[in-house]
């Protein structure tokens, strides 16, 4: 009994010594942080059965931790180029396993647009997700942002913002949709969309915001029609908007409810100095939402 107790004490002491050596060794040992290859979703679906949602979430967490390790460099880590391709494939696999997984879309949006410049691929994933997360306005909002900011595709941006606006009834998305439809020369679609949103709205502030945008787009459309008439009549486009008034096509240049002034750009497209965003000139603009 006494020998056993002594042996136990000796072993415990030996353990304490060894574990401290081991800890120091493990801290200094070079670490290669790798993500590696993820098997295809079709193959995984065959073997994981009803655990595919867990597997999808695990895959996403694996990518998040790996992505975190890229920014948080440890002194003993072995430098290797970031595995962006494997990261994207893993996220894609997770989405195929669980197309409702919001973490996957959120991570794809956060990591592959700003950092990697793959907004086109991210929008492909987001469009796929929209077929499943039919209630979620975040996906069309992300896609709209990517289309507008990274891809410079106002028509796609308008379509996504319109979808986000319909799902969320958020004034921001409605205004963004109308704005990008205007940018994409789709004012004729923007106007009925705004009229529909005004009809649906029960909030007076919201109605006022939409009405202001509607008035701005209707003004721009009226000028655009005047330009088309001018072109039919004179065979060329006017150089300035004043020509429309001088030729009596328009009685006056409509005012911009945002406080800007309409003008013609070098492609003869109707523009406004307000860029359809409130400009406080002290004359025309009055804020709808009081500060």
């Amino acid at each position: 009994m006494k020998i056993k107790a002594l042996a136990l004490i000796f072993l415990l002491l030996a353990y304490v010594v060894i574990v401290s050596w081991l800890t120091r060794y493990m801290e200094q040992r070079p670490v290669a942080i790798k993500l590696g290859y993820t098997p295809s979703a079709s193959a995984l679906k065959l073997v994981c059965g009803d655990q595919r949602h867990v597997l999808a979430e695990w895959s996403i967490l694996k990518v998040i931790f790996y992505f975190g390790s890229l920014t948080d460099k440890r002194p003993n880590s072995i430098a290797s180029p970031p595995e962006y391709y494997n990261m994207f494939k893993t996220v894609e696999t997770a989405i195929e396993l669980d197309p409702y997984n919001m973490d996957a879309y959120y991570f794809a949006q956060a990591a592959f647009t700003w950092e990697v410049g793959h907004a086109q691929d991210v929008n492909r994933l987001l469009s796929y997700g929209m077929r499943f997360r039919t209630w979620d306005y975040y996906l069309p909002y992300f896609a709209g942002f990517n289309a507008a900011y990274f891809l410079k595709k106002p028509q796609d941006a308008a379509m996504y913002f319109k979808k986000a606006a319909e799902l969320s009834r958020n004034t921001l998305f409605t205004n963004l949709a109308a704005r990008y439809l205007y940018e994409a020369d789709q004012t004729q679609i923007a106007i009925p969309f705004l009229i529909m949103m005004i009809d649906k709205s029960t909030d007076t502030t919201e109605k006022a915001l939409y009405t202001r945008r509607l008035e701005a787009l209707q003004a721009a459309q009226a000028i655009q029609k005047g330009i088309e008439q001018f072109e039919i009549k004179y065979g060329n486009k006017p150089v300035t908007l004043q020509e429309l008034v001088i030729t009596k096509i328009l009685s006056e240049i409509p005012t911009d409810p945002y406080g800007g002034t309409f003008y013609l750009d070098d492609k003869s497209k109707v523009r406004t100095t307000s860029k359809l965003a409130p400009v406080n000139t002290g004359q025309n603009y009055s804020p709808i939402i009081k500060p």
Binding site: D50, Q51, H53, V54, E57, L61, I64, Y100, N101, M102, D103, Y106, F107
Partner: peptide, 21 residues
């Protein structure tokens, strides 16, 4: 809490997984 955007959904995923196993 490891989830970025779907804490509740991950909790349900995990409990169903445990029950199933």
């Amino acid at each position: 809490l490891f989830s970025m955007r779907q804490v509740q959904e991950l909790a349900i995923t995990l409990v169903l997984s445990i029950i199933s196993l």
